[in-house]
């Protein structure tokens, strides 16, 4: 059974007008593009993808948003702008679930959350603007083939991002294995950089009483919000892997406050980014529904299996998955 994706179909027809002139449908492993340019993706493949992404997030405790977008492009041939916009809209649902489930489990510094949001709005706007530029940038000739510039740039960006995350995780698993044998870990680079950034006294300086921060430059908070907003707007990831350590190490927010504030910020950021992406026509509503339900189910399975699955060795499996995804992205790019 296949599910038609209306917004993805619009962009396929708009960006590749030659497709609607084909006499035969384009048939991939998990998708079909009809001669009229309508994209349908296998519901089974999308379900397995959502369950897998949710399972990864639930069992390893790391957000898998950075895997979602390239895998949607790989499996369903969904244009990057639609994969990103739909991933962001899916985040609204996921953040709603997390907000409702973890209410009362962490303190929320609303002042900090709203100031972060100010920076995030700027970041989201820049991110969506960059995506719009890429969308209408046309094609480029590479090795004699005409390739979409958006596909080229996004493949490169996601390959680099996944490569960096994969390397960080590999280092973490190695450090965990070494610690198990009695070798102590060095101080985290993020903590060292954070201590240096905290000394910036660029006015205006503000206090965050809920977080116990007496004085911090407003520009640092805006900067953290901008960075995470840019990641959300441009790549469709939650940005929590930047925001959480930045709140703790750069802004000096206690962990218990950072958890609640991160969820609050995530919800309003996802709502704003979805609004902006939907105005640009990047959100595919049927895709969002399927992803939201399947990733949530996968997440629960991951949580239930967590104790059996998680350990330095299984994290290495996660690293392998990341590098296999990069390899598949490169293969798709060159061989279609």
């Amino acid at each position: 059974m296949s599910i038609p994706l209306p917004t993805a179909s619009f962009w396929i027809k708009y960006l590749h007008p030659e497709i609607v002139r084909l006499a035969e449908p384009v048939v991939g492993w998990f998708y079909t593009i009809s001669p009229s340019g309508e994209l349908s993706v296998s519901l089974g493949a999308l379900t397995i993808l959502g369950l897998f992404i949710g399972l990864m997030a639930g069992s390893f405790g790391v957000g898998s948003g950075f895997l979602m977008t390239p895998l949607l492009n790989l499996v369903g041939n969904i244009p990057y702008n639609v994969a990103i916009g739909s991933d962001v809209a899916h985040m609204v649902g996921s953040a709603t679930i997390s907000q409702m489930r973890q209410r009362g489990m962490g303190y929320v510094d609303y002042k900090l959350g709203l100031l972060l949001f100010v920076g995030s709005v700027i970041g989201v706007e820049i991110g969506v603007f960059l995506m719009q530029l890429l969308k209408f940038a046309g094609e480029i000739a590479v090795f004699g083939h005409d390739l979409s510039l958006m596909q080229l740039i996004m493949t490169l960006v996601f390959a680099l991002l996944l490569g960096w995350i994969g390397l960080m995780m590999y280092r973490e698993t190695r450090a965990s294995l070494r610690m198990a044998t009695g070798v102590t870990a060095p101080e985290e680079p993020m903590a060292m950089a954070g201590s240096r950034l905290q000394t910036i006294n660029l006015p205006p300086m503000i206090a965050l009483p809920v977080s116990g921060v007496e004085s911090i430059s407003l520009w640092l908070i805006i900067g953290v919000g901008l960075a995470s907003g840019l990641l959300t707007g441009f790549l469709g990831v939650s940005g929590a892997f930047i925001r959480m350590p930045a709140m703790i190490y750069v802004l000096g927010v206690p962990t218990v406050v950072s958890i609640g504030t991160n969820l609050f910020e995530l919800l309003i950021l996802a709502l704003y980014a979805t609004f902006t992406h939907s105005l640009a026509g990047n959100v595919d509503l049927p895709l969002v529904i399927v992803l939201l339900i399947t990733t949530t189910v996968g997440n629960q399975i991951g949580v239930l299996l967590q104790k059996r699955l998680v350990g330095p060795r299984s994290l290495q499996v996660y690293v392998v998955i990341i590098f296999v995804t990069i390899l598949l992205m490169i293969l798709k790019f060159f061989f279609g």
Binding site: A89, H90, M91, V92, G93, S94, A95, T96, I97, M100, L271, T274, F275, H277, S278, V283, L285, V288, I289, L292, I293
Partner: peptide
């Protein structure tokens, strides 16, 4: 795009 994911969530 805003309401559906929030309600399903």
């Amino acid at each position: 795009a805003l309401v559906i994911p929030a309600v399903i969530g």
